[in-house]
C-alpha cells in the first residue's frame, strides 16, 4: 500500500510543472486607456521567457477566447476552460483539486476575484476544484501578494504544512514584482523569495477567467 502511495507521489512529483519564470500568464495586461498601471516598474528580468510551441498554442487559444470587456461573456468560454480543467483534474488528481488560499498581504482586490470564481457564473466547483480550510488538505496553494514581511512566516508555515505535490500559484502583478508596492520597506518583492512558485497569474486584479485559465496552465 505504502509503495503504491509512494509511486503516486512520485508520479505527481514528476507531473509538476516547471518553475517560474518559464511560464507566464496569458492574461491581459493592458488596462483602462491602454496603460499598464499596477504593473508599474517591473524590471526586464520579470518579462516573459520564450514559450514552448505547445504552451504558445494553448495560450493563443485562451487569448482569443478571453473576454474582459464584453457585457456577458459567452457561457461556452467558461465551459470550455472548465471542461479542460475537469479532464486534467480527473487524470492527475483523482477528480478533485483542493486549493488553499493564503493572503500574504494583498490589497484585497485579488481576493475579491477569487471569491468571484466561486459564484454561480463561474462555479468552479462543478469542474472539481474546491477551496479547503486547511493546508493539510490542499494540493495547490494560491498566494495573493505582495508578501508583507509580517506575513512571511505564516506563508512559509502554510507551505510547509502542505502535502506533495505542493503546487503554488501566485496571483496578481504584486506577486510578480511587488506591483505598485515595489521596493517598499515592508514587503518582499516576489513570492519566490519565500517559497518556490509554479506559475504567476498576472493582472491587477486578474479576472476570474484569467484565474481559471491560469490554474489550467499551471496543471501542465
Amino acid at each position: 500500500m505504502w509503495q503504491l502511495t509512494k509511486n503516486i507521489i512520485q508520479q505527481l512529483g514528476r507531473k509538476r510543472p516547471r518553475l517560474f519564470p518559464q511560464l507566464i500568464s496569458p492574461a491581459r495586461e493592458t488596462r483602462a486607456n491602454g496603460d499598464q498601471r499596477g504593473a508599474l516598474h517591473c524590471s526586464p528580468l520579470d518579462s516573459p521567457a520564450p514559450l514552448s510551441p505547445l504552451q504558445a498554442a494553448e495560450i493563443s487559444y485562451f487569448k482569443s477566447k478571453i473576454q474582459t470587456e464584453t457585457l456577458i461573456p459567452s457561457h461556452d468560454n467558461i465551459q470550455q476552460i472548465g471542461a479542460a480543467l475537469s479532464t486534467k483534474i480527473k487524470k492527475q488528481f483523482n477528480r478533485a483539486l483542493s486549493i488553499r488560499l493564503v493572503d500574504a498581504g494583498s490589497c484585497n482586490g485579488c481576493e475579491l476575484e477569487i471569491q468571484a470564481i466561486n459564484n454561480p457564473y463561474y462555479n468552479i466547483e462543478q469542474f472539481g476544484i474546491h477551496f479547503v480550510a486547511s493546508p493539510r488538505h490542499a494540493d495547490m496553494l494560491l498566494v495573493t501578494a505582495p508578501v508583507s514581511k509580517n506575513m512571511r512566516d505564516a506563508l512559509l508555515k502554510t507551505y510547509e504544512a502542505m502535502p506533495f505535490p505542493k503546487l503554488v500559484i501566485a496571483i496578481g502583478n504584486c506577486a510578480q514584482c511587488g506591483g505598485v508596492f515595489k521596493d517598499s520597506y515592508a514587503i518582499l518583492n516576489t513570492v519566490n523569495e519565500v517559497i518556490p512558485i509554479n506559475y504567476i497569474i498576472k493582472g491587477c486584479p486578474p479576472t476570474p477567467i484569467d484565474i481559471m485559465s491560469g490554474i489550467l496552465i499551471a496543471l501542465g
Binding site: R31, G38, E69, I72, E113, A116
Partner: peptide, 21 residues
Amino acid sequence: SCLKERLLRYNAHYMKHRYMM
C-alpha cells in the same frame, strides 16, 4: 453573488475595469 457579478461585468463594460480601479 449573481447580482454582484452582473454589476461587475457592467463595470468592466462601462469603465474597462471590474472594480473601477
